[in-house]
């Protein structure tokens, strides 16, 4: 299958290794992977800020770039939710874009759900020595119903022990601009997440959204935890996340 990899603006800037891991995984699953050259951002930050016109413009730009692909894969539940759920709504009243937006939106998938639900791929090429726990990011979990897929994939990684933490479905307090606009509230919320992580004592906390992971890692380090690794699920599944 010929798929477009949409790496997301955050992965591009903050952690390219997630993009390369996603690429390796998709190739391991026999996809022909194209990284569309013009991609920047799905427009979610503008949408969240209430800037509908700017969000719609970025949605159109992305739809035009992604139209030719059987599937678009995103290593983020949050961006995937925006693409699948918000793009069609943003473009619904625009005769020229509504149908195009709807078709592309349907073909956008979060990485772990694409691997499991669409490709039925369950043989990740990695191994991992140690225990991991998983943070369910809100938009992926409550917006797209992603819950079993990452766990199914992690269960197939040789050497990996899975330990569920308490309240794994609780928000980590990231929320995009929220973490900066309401930093103090965000810190209160992520502290509760850090406590759950500390209590389960896993070697790594894994998630499907870099935003949440940066928030969690940043707070863990500030609290003095330099041991717990914070990894994107693509990094774990594709291997090479070790030293």
């Amino acid at each position: 299958m010929r798929v477009a990899l949409y790496v997301t603006c955050l992965v591009d800037l903050m952690r390219p290794s997630v993009g390369f891991a996603a690429l390796r995984l998709l190739e391991a699953a026999d996809c022909e992977v194209v990284v569309p050259a013009g991609q920047t951002c799905c427009g979610q930050p503008a949408w969240s800020a209430g800037e509908r016109a700017a969000a719609a413009a970025l949605a159109k730009k992305a739809v035009a770039e992604l139209e030719g692909f059987a599937a678009v894969v995103v290593p983020s539940g949050s961006c995937a939710e925006h693409m699948r759920k918000v793009w069609p709504e943003l473009l619904a009243d625009d005769a020229h874009w509504a149908e195009r937006g709807r078709i592309v939106a349907e073909r956008c998938h979060e990485l772990s759900s694409f691997l499991v639900d669409v490709l039925k791929f369950t043989e990740p090429p990695a191994d991992f020595a140690g225990s991991v726990t998983y943070h369910d990011s809100c938009k992926g979990l409550r917006g797209l119903g992603i819950k079993k897929q990452p766990r199914e994939l992690l269960a197939k990684v040789p050497g990996l022990r899975f330990d569920e933490m308490s309240e794994c479905e609780e928000c980590c307090g990231f929320g995009g601009a929220f973490a900066v606009e309401f930093g103090e509230i965000s810190t209160q919320i992520v502290d509760r997440k850090c406590e759950s992580i500390a209590a389960v004592g896993a070697d790594a906390v894994v998630g499907g959204d870099l935003g949440c992971l940066l928030n969690i890692e940043g707070r863990l380090r500030r609290r003095g935890d330099s041991r717990t690794r914070v990894l994107h699920i693509a990094e774990v599944l594709a291997g090479g996340s070790g030293e």
Partner: peptide, 15 residues
């Protein structure tokens, strides 16, 4: 406001 409560993990310096 971000680094008031948490560190900012950064990448390798290339996009």
């Amino acid at each position: 406001a971000w680094t008031e409560g948490r560190d900012l993990p950064v990448g390798p310096g290339r996009t």
